[in-house]
Structure formats: C-alpha cells, structure tokens
Amino acid sequence: MERQSPLFRLFLHAAALLLAAIILTPLLWLFVMSISPAADLAAKPLRWWPATMDFSRYATLLSSVENSAGAAFMASLRNSLMVAGMATVAAVALAVPAGWAVSRTPSVGWSLSVVIATYMLPPVALAVPLYMALAKFGLLNSVFGLALVYLTILAPFTTWLMKSGFDGIPREIEQAAVIDGASLWQTLRIITLPLAMPVVATSALFAFLLGWDEFFYALLFTSDQRAKTLTVAIADLAGGRVSDYGLIATAGVLAALPPVLVGLVMQRALISGLTSGGVKG
C-alpha cells in the first residue's frame, strides 16, 4: 500500500530483531543450561556456550530407575498427563451439551454468564473448603481429586469456547435436519458435532494446556508421587537444595516441550480461539 522508505525499513528490521532477541534469549538460555556441564554453569566468568554438549540430564530425568531423580520426575510427568487428560475429557464432555444449549437457546445464557463470572474468583477463595472436602473423601494426593478440582478452571472456559463455536454453525442446518426427520441426537451426531470437531479439538487443547499449567491447587492438594504434578515437582526442584541448576533447567525444558510444540503446531487455531472473544467483544 504505502511504499516504505529505506530508513523505515531499517527501523522495522532492527525492531524485529530486538523483539526476536527479547523472546528467544531467555528460552535459549534455558536450553543451554540444560546441556552445559555443571562446571560450566558455575564458572566465573560464565561460559555462555558449553565446550561439550551434555545431554546426560535428559537421560537421567527420563529414566525410571527406582528412587532416582528420574523416577520422581517420570511419576510427576505421568500424574500431570493423567490429571490434565482426565480434567480435559470431563470438561469437554460437560461443555459440549452446555455450549450447544446456550448457543441455541439464548434464554438460558445467563447461567453461562454466571459460570464464566467465576473466572474472577481467586482460587484461594475456594481452596479451604475444597481442601477440607477432599480430605474428607480421601481424595487428597489423588489424581482423581485434583482432576475434579481442575474443572473449576477448565469447564467454564471450554463451555465458553464451545458456545462461540456452535454460534458459528448456522441454526438453519439443524432446522433442515429436523424437518428431514432427524431426532435431536441424530442431528447432533450426524450434522452438528462433525462440524464442531475443530472447535472441540481447540477447546480440548486449551483445556489440556490450562491443566498442564496449573500450580496452585496441585501445590495444595498433592504432596507425594501418587499425585504430585510436574509443575509442583519443578517448583520443588527450583526451591530445594538441588546443586545442579542444569537439572532444573532440563526439567523445565521437558515440561515446556508439550505446550510449546502444541502452541507452534496449532498456532492458528489457538490464536483464533484466544482472540475470538476479544475481537468479537
């Protein structure tokens, strides 16, 4: 549209380089720490790039030798997968019918608004009764208990995403199916849900990332390998007396890998999901 002056082009590229550096430097450093020998990390002046790359920490953490750092890490990895996975499945199962109902019957929409308004609640406002209840039912230190609690965060969000998704599917298609003689269940199964699959996938992805990221409830409600999640395990490492900072960095890289890969691969879907509410108002 407008021709860029050479000076402006130079400025643009400089600014782009700066932005790239701001984004990448901390991430690169996390990776460099994970492959630097302990001696390099403790050196003064600091070695910014290891003389020899050392991937042994990855092997350490991903091994399942009993009572090793690896066993604890693997257990927390498994717990995170299970908790986030179960909470995601449950949240989507709740969100699909509810999101469809609100999208097609606006008169019940206020109830979703109330559910979404709970986003304002700080988790600390629910933590004490939840703690007492989980203790009572023996669900402290349980992946099931934690997954249930995660629904407080995941379910409202996925329902909202599903509702916007269903809004994008014309009602007329469902009306046509009804006139064609399809029952509600047939309409949803054959027509609506296949059309909504991309939104279901995006919602599930978001829910999983939220569950994977969660820390507060996991910190409160888990204390050992039975249910302790990756985020708590990493916080323990970071706050503990671990002398090898490279190992902490390695755990960080491994924990970051799934969401970062998902983020890069699913970028378009994630951004449209993220911004749909914002742009549409």
């Binding site: 009306q175 046509a176 199916a177 009804v178 006139i179 064609d180 054959i190 027509i191 059309l195």
Partner: peptide, 19 residues
C-alpha cells in the same frame, strides 16, 4: 416438523457441509 409431511428450502441452503 418431521411429522408434518413438508419439505423446506432455506435462504442459506442449509446443506450439511460434512455430507
């Protein structure tokens, strides 16, 4: 509607995109 023995053509056609 399904028991009325009617058929309807919609403005947006309302075809089933996945079929």
């Amino acid at each position: 509607p399904k028991d009325r023995d009617i058929a309807m053509v919609f403005q947006s056609y309302a075809l089933y995109p996945n079929l």
